[in-house]
């Protein structure tokens, strides 16, 4: 009998797909909208006079303010003592308010998300595996999920006071709910034929869970974590402002409102946006491209190839 299925040349795995060379202006396409927005902003701000000018600082003024925010403590210290050691200089940088705000947000948020990811995954697995815990948690989560986590802030402040702990509780809680739901769904909807295949090879329940259910529900778990991170981000930033703490990007923004420091607000907002973007790129994209995308499981879920 003839070999009908064109048995392909065993392609070497090292051989990477030829990268299509694209001109620089195509590569930079994602940047264009920002340039347009900034240009419009700049033109509009330049029309503003007097008090209005304070409310609409020009782009260069904002950039200058950002520079000032970062370097102000350093330059002031240098003015007092020109022979400042290099380590002290670096240390002075960390006294700049914008960096302090950023660092505070930067540890609280991933920390809260990490707690939520662990607790959410455990609860989701319990729900997916045991009918009792499913009937216990589903009504609870269904009621809690629609409540914006930020609305809990006053209660949590009264119970746990003003401080990091309040922000962490609210952030983790907001993030926990969608993670638990997604893990539950993922565990419940693993392709039954994989489970039957494992059963047919006499795998016991625990082994099936470890070797089939967990990897099989990874696409759902990852998308749950992604939603969880987004919710953590929103809730955390809101809670910072309302919990009345001193350090944190949005706490800083609300402070700046008092002084009509628009430039500071714009700088802090940019950092927030950039931060979320980097977190997504650093955290999720590498994991996904090494697992579910490599295994072709996103296509199976109906996701389209993104053309960005």
């Amino acid at each position: 009998m003839q070999t009908s299925e064109a048995t392909p040349v065993p392609p070497s795995l090292d051989e990477k797909k030829k990268e299509v060379r694209r001109p620089i202006w195509v590569k930079l396409r994602p940047v264009y909208p920002f340039i347009v927005i900034l240009a419009i902003w700049q033109v509009a701000a330049m029309q503003a006079q007097g008090n209005q000018g304070r409310l609409f600082p020009t782009v260069d003024a904002i950039v200058f303010r950002a520079w000032e925010l970062v370097t102000d403590p350093l330059f002031r210290a240098l003015a007092e003592n020109p022979n400042l050691g290099i380590l002290d200089q670096v240390w002075k940088l960390f006294e700049s308010p914008i960096l302090l705000h950023t660092l505070n947000t930067a540890w609280r948020l991933p920390f809260s998300f990490f707690i939520a990811a662990i607790v959410g995954t455990i609860v989701g697995i319990l729900m997916g595996r045991f009918a009792f815990w499913e009937s216990f948690f589903v009504p609870l989560l269904s009621v809690l999920l629609p409540i914006p986590a930020i609305a809990w802030t006053p209660i949590v402040v009264i119970w746990s006071g003003i401080g990091d702990q309040t922000v962490i509780v609210i952030t983790a809680f907001a993030s926990f709910l969608p993670i638990a739901m997604a893990v539950w769904t993922g565990v419940k909807t693993v392709n039954p034929v994989w489970i039957r295949a494992a059963q047919s090879m006499n795998a016991d329940k625990m082994t099936i869970f470890r070797t089939v259910v967990l990897p099989g529900s990874l696409p759902m778990i990852l998308s749950g974590l992604r939603i969880g991170l987004a919710r953590a981000w929103r809730a955390g930033v809101g809670a910072e402002a309302f919990a009345g703490i001193r350090w944190g990007l949005s706490a800083g923004i609300f402070d700046a409102q008092e002084y009509l420091d628009i430039a500071f607000m714009m700088v802090a907002l940019s950092v927030l946006g950039l931060f979320g973007f980097v977190l997504e790129k650093v955290l999720f994209q590498p994991i996904e491209s090494r697992t579910v995308i490599r295994w072709g499981m996103m296509e199976a879920m109906g996701a389209q190839d993104k053309k960005v």
Partner: peptide, 14 residues
């Protein structure tokens, strides 16, 4: 010990 081959693609994608 029995080996089963299914109609659906039942390989583990991971």
């Amino acid at each position: 010990d029995k080996g089963v081959v299914f109609q659906e693609y039942a390989l583990f994608p991971w």
